[in-house]
């Protein structure tokens, strides 16, 4: 009886996921459709007589872009968590004078148009000599995520019971040790949440990549797609194929991360 219920729930879950991912199916469909059939009316639900030209182009050209995206994504995650977790902790638990203003500025800072930010970064990066490098891109992409990280860490860390921190203090732990060995482990959930979105933002950034890494030898995948856009033409097979190919390794990463979180929560419950 219970097994059947779980089965039904899974079925509902699968259907919901399928509805959510339908646009992705459509992307796959377009990536395989012959150029003459792209704008057929009515469209075909399934790419009969598929073309693999797009995939051939992508597989031979996009490897370096994918790897750069991965490096930029992971680098941005590391930088973002390193900057925002201590700040979130300070704002949530140590509550310095003026802390409210800091979180407020972060809220506002997110509203600065990306294009203005990009122009500012261009000047800064040019003088630092990090234009057209992945490091510059990591710095720029982190600005998409650090405000988010600070606000999320603040919100979640304010739920950490004060007694726990007081106990650590009584045990003789300094503020940094308390943060590292108590606060961070129990905030694993929020770390993963912040890391996840940071990665996704960095992965899909285009504005910074096109402004700050225009001529670099290492460019992210969003720039790789550019290879299929001319001044009057778009090679949709290859554009969609790039998106498909790019999302496969990242999807694995997500699924693994999610399993890790689920496992981590259970492990955390048993710890201490």
């Amino acid at each position: 009886m219970r097994k059947l219920r779980a089965g039904t729930t899974t079925l509902i879950g699968v259907v919901l996921t399928a509805v959510m991912l339908f646009p992705l199916y459509w992307m796959v469909n377009v990536s395989l459709t012959q150029p003459t059939m792209l704008r057929k009316d009515p469209p075909s639900l399934f790419p009969f007589d598929p073309t693999f030209d797009g995939y051939r182009a992508v597989l031979s050209q996009q490897g370096p872009y994918l790897l750069t995206s991965l490096i930029v994504g992971l680098g941005t995650v590391a930088l973002t968590v390193a900057l925002s977790a201590p700040a979130g902790y300070a704002l949530a638990k140590l509550r310095p004078r003026g802390g409210g203003t800091v979180s407020f500025i972060f809220l506002i800072a997110q509203m600065i148009p990306t294009i203005i930010m990009a122009m500012g970064f261009y000047l800064i990066f040019n003088s630092w000599g990090i234009l057209d490098t992945p490091w510059g891109l990591i710095l720029a992409d982190s600005t998409l995520a650090v405000p988010f990280g600070v606000l999320i860490f603040t919100a979640f860390m304010s739920g950490i019971p004060g007694e726990l921190l007081a106990a650590a203090h009584v045990d003789g732990a300094g503020p940094w040790r308390t943060f590292r060995s108590i606060v961070m482990p129990i905030s694993r959930n929020s770390v993963v949440t912040v890391a996840l979105f940071t990665f996704l933002w960095a992965w899909s950034d285009f504005m910074y990549a096109s402004t700050l890494d225009r001529g670099g030898s290492l460019q992210p995948i969003t720039m790789g797609i550019y290879r299929y856009i001319g001044n009057n033409t778009q090679d949709w097979n290859a554009i969609m194929a790039t998106a498909v190919v790019a999302s496969i390794p990242a999807t694995f990463l997500l699924v693994i991360a999610q399993r890790y979180v689920a496992a981590g929560v259970t492990a955390g419950a048993l710890k201490d």
Partner: peptide, 28 residues
């Protein structure tokens, strides 16, 4: 709720975020 595949399906819900906005908006 705990049910088989829950974690995987939940992860799949994030896949739209992996697409460059150029692609997802174009698909729509």
């Amino acid at each position: 709720k705990k049910f088989p595949l829950a974690a995987t399906l939940r992860a799949l819900f994030l896949v739209p975020w992996l697409l460059p906005l150029l692609v997802s908006a174009s698909v729509w």
